[in-house]
Amino acid sequence: MRREGLLNLVLALLLLALPFAAQMLGEPFYVTLATRMAILALAAVGLNLALGFGGLVSFGHAAFFGIGGYAAGILASHAFNAEPLLGLPGTDQMPVIWLVAALVCALVALPIGAISLRTSGVYFIMITLAFAQMVYYFAVSWPAYGGEDGLSITVRNGFPGLNTANPLSFFLVCYAVLMAALVLMWRIRDSRFGAALQAARQNDTRVAAIGIRPYHIRLAAFVISAVVTGIAGALFADLNRFVSPSMMSWQMSGELIVLIILGGTGRLFGPVAGAILYVLLEFALGGLTERWQFFLGFILLGVVLFARGGIIGVLAGKARHG
């Protein structure tokens, strides 16, 4: 366990050091790359609660990622055009946007989870996919906020006391949120609730037999997981200053799963390791060849077939609970 703790610390410091090094070397583009890593890691940290700890393979988390993104885009556009939304003014302040993104994601995740969790196994994978497709097509065909073309955010939303237009400040905001989410996941994992969730993954009959209802535990985990991914979506929209239905596409859901497996399923820092490696691969291969997806495919295949447990599994050994 100590080795994993050390590895986690190294990963956290590595991600923090990257943009500062880039800034010193006069390569501001790498700051954006690091921000992308932090945000994708945050989205995957959310999914990891359901997928890694709870064993709930949600193939639809891109929906929450996109809903978070649209929360940022819609609130910002109402603030920019000074049009009220449902009688309330829009906002360009990140904390408010995050709060709204979290609330909306929770409200959407609750019914989706309540229905999906009645199924299990492949059916769960497919029904979460179906709900995400529903949200995706809704966004594509709803004309009010750009439909298929998406919605631009004219000016990146602000954070009190910071100039978020500066890439480094924005990175630090994202990094801070990521670390806060990791602390939350760490506290959840080691709590009674987390223990029940992981026990339900291993054997839900036994959990039910000692008087805990796995359904409620799983539903709570699914909702928290959606909220964290949604906040990541709001940050992602601010990073690109653009939000479109492609954030909700099933490929995005697949990518989030890839990040987790690449890093190590059910490991606290697995999503962080996965996001760092994935963005690096995407960037390095993309620089070498136009056909980078071909090689990415082989690398992913190699990880599944030969490196079970992902990066954290390879570097820090097996998890405590197998």
Binding site: V57, I125, F294, L296, G297, F298, I299, V304
Partner: peptide, 27 residues
């Protein structure tokens, strides 16, 4: 090699196959 694995591994491996096959055809 995937028959004995859990669904998560199958999803990821066949996702990787999509990338490989699509790019091969494009090539």
């Amino acid at each position: 090699r995937l028959y004995g694995r859990d669904h998560l591994d199958q999803v990821l491996a066949t996702f990787a196959l999509i990338l490989i096959l699509s790019e091969s055809v494009r090539w």
